[in-house]
Simulated scan of single mutants.
Amino acid sequence: MQILKFKRWAAICLFLSGLAHAGELRVFVKDQHAKPVGDAVLLLTPVDPSKMPRLKPKDEVVDQIDKEFMPYVKPVVAGSKIFFPNKDNVRHHVYSFSPTKSFEIQLYSGKSAAPVVLDKPGIVVLGCNIHDWMLGYIYVADTPYFAKSKADGTALIEGLPEGDYQIRIWHPGMGMIAGETGKQVSINDESTGQLNWQINVKPVTRISRKNSSQGPGY
């Protein structure tokens, strides 16, 4: 019994120690007009490749609600399975012709169709063959350290081991390039770093949404 208690105590201490030795980076993103930028993806990559942990793919979800992709921008780690549940009362036909991942999910409604595995880093643009205005983006990351900025322009990347990192940023208004690379940042254990980043973003061209005059089921 004493041995079991000791092992349990040791496991708890190890877990808490792992939490205590993790830093974080808070980034404020603004555009060329000094306005906050939401939906920007921030990524940190260890400068020392040997410190890159093994990626842990997850099951992720991009909803279809009110004939829109939710969320508009979704960062995921490479290898993740993406489910596309349809919560509308009409059918959708999801597709992507992106070099990162080309796929097509035929007309369906209700629960999600079979998931799509995104095993290659890059940008995936989503569309719907039925509703032309529907547009969404998935950023497939090659690092586990990433976050997306909120509407107020803030993003928090947590759980960062001590060390030096290369930081990147991407936003739909930057086009289909992999993103802009910034300066290296150093992370110390149990600390929160602060970074302001101004980017140039262009308006994203979107097809105007059609109204209900198209008839029921559209």
Rank of each mutant, 00 (worst) to 15 (best):
M1R: 10
I3R: 13
L4C: 13
K7A: 14
I12K: 12
I12Y: 11
C13T: 04
L14P: 00
F15T: 11
S17G: 15
S17K: 00
G18N: 06
A20K: 00
G23S: 08
R26E: 13
R26Y: 10
V29K: 02
D31G: 08
D31S: 05
D31E: 09
A34I: 00
G38E: 11
A40W: 05
V41F: 06
L42H: 03
L43K: 12
P46H: 10
P46N: 11
P53H: 06
R54E: 15
P57T: 11
P57H: 11
V61C: 02
V61M: 07
Q64N: 11
I65W: 08
I65R: 13
D66E: 12
K67V: 10
E68F: 05
F69D: 01
V73W: 05
V73M: 01
P75Q: 06
P75T: 02
A78F: 01
S80P: 03
S80V: 07
K81W: 05
K81D: 11
I82K: 01
F84C: 02
K87Q: 12
R91K: 14
S98E: 10
S98W: 09
S98R: 06
P99N: 11
T100A: 13
K101I: 01
F103E: 10
E104T: 13
A113H: 08
P115G: 07
P115E: 04
V117G: 00
G122C: 08
H131F: 04
H131S: 09
D132A: 15
D132V: 04
M134H: 07
M134R: 04
L135G: 07
Y137G: 00
Y139C: 05
V140H: 05
A141M: 11
D142C: 05
D142H: 07
D142T: 07
T143K: 07
P144L: 08
P144C: 10
P144T: 12
Y145F: 15
K148C: 08
S149C: 09
A151F: 07
A151K: 14
D152R: 06
G153W: 02
G153F: 10
T154L: 14
G159I: 03
L160V: 06
E162S: 14
G163K: 04
Y165F: 14
I167Q: 06
I169H: 01
P172V: 03
M174N: 02
I177Q: 07
G179M: 05
G179K: 04
E180H: 06
E180Q: 14
I187A: 02
N188V: 03
N188E: 15
S191Y: 09
S191C: 01
T192V: 14
Q194I: 12
P203N: 08
R206I: 15
R206K: 15
R209D: 06
K210P: 09
S212T: 12
G215Q: 06
P216F: 13
